[in-house]
């Protein structure tokens, strides 16, 4: 598909002969009254995005209110939600069994809406470490954990972690003993996966909030393990 306006790289200057400093505010700051103006040039793909949205709105297929609420919902999801589930599971063995059976239902118990796509948890233990990938695209439990990191969606991780997981984990600073089996889960079907990490030693008596703070997004993917800070 060749087209006059087709960019061959991410950012393309539209040749307005204009820069943001003429607005009288520092470069890099969004104009206060025009939240839709983003830093940087308006690319062809940004115009395509706006055009598709405008057509869908004009045809009544979506409403501005639905768009706004969906954007808010996107912003409301984060790895902290997954961390809460893990911390609760560490403290409550019966909850853990329910989490392993059905993440979405377990999340609902905590007032978390994990969305309609089923999510499964895979549990790390002393003899096995689990890590998640989608080699075919970028399937990820977004409706619970929020956006997937860029590296999860990129070639190096997707191609290498199924083939040389220990080398990839080592790049993340995670070295695993040979006695610990490394189990890679390739998300190919609709349902998504998150890792239920092993509770680290040295956390006896910790409450749920303190435990949850140990569980990062990378722990939920399996490229890190929760660690008690050494300070």
């Amino acid at each position: 598909m060749s087209h006059d306006h087709e960019p061959d790289h991410d950012h393309e200057h539209r040749g307005h002969g204009h820069d943001h400093e003429s607005h009288g505010h520092p470069p890099g700051q969004r104009h206060p009254f025009q939240p839709d103006l983003e830093d940087g040039p308006y690319t062809w793909h940004m115009a395509l995005t706006d055009a598709v949205a405008d057509l869908l709105l004009a045809k009544g297929l979506i409403t501005a209110d639905e768009l706004r609420r969906t954007l808010e919902d996107i912003d409301s999801k984060s790895p902290a939600l997954g961390a809460r589930l893990v911390a609760r599971a560490w403290l409550d063995p019966a909850f853990k069994e329910r989490l392993l059976a059905d993440v979405n239902a377990a999340a609902a118990e905590l007032g978390i809406d994990a969305g309609p796509i089923p999510i499964r948890a895979v549990e790390c233990g002393p003899g096995e470490h689990h890590v998640i990938v989608c080699t075919l695209c970028s399937c990820y439990p977004r409706l619970l954990l929020g956006a997937a990191p860029d590296w999860y969606k990129a070639r190096a991780y997707r191609s290498r972690v199924v083939r040389e997981p220990r080398a990839v984990l080592a790049e993340f600073g995670l070295e695993l003993e040979p006695e610990v089996a490394v189990i890679v889960h390739d998300s190919t079907a609709e349902l998504r996966f998150m890792v239920l990490p092993e509770r680290p030693a040295g956390t006896e008596g910790w409450d749920e909030e303190r435990l949850a703070a140990l569980v990062t997004r990378d722990c939920l993917i399996g490229v890190a393990r929760p660690r008690v800070p050494t300070t």
């Binding site: 220990r166 006695e179 490394v182 889960h185």
Partner: peptide, 9 residues
């Protein structure tokens, strides 16, 4: 890697 390493698909 070790013989117990697996991929689940």
């Amino acid at each position: 890697g070790p013989a117990r390493d697996q991929v689940v698909v």
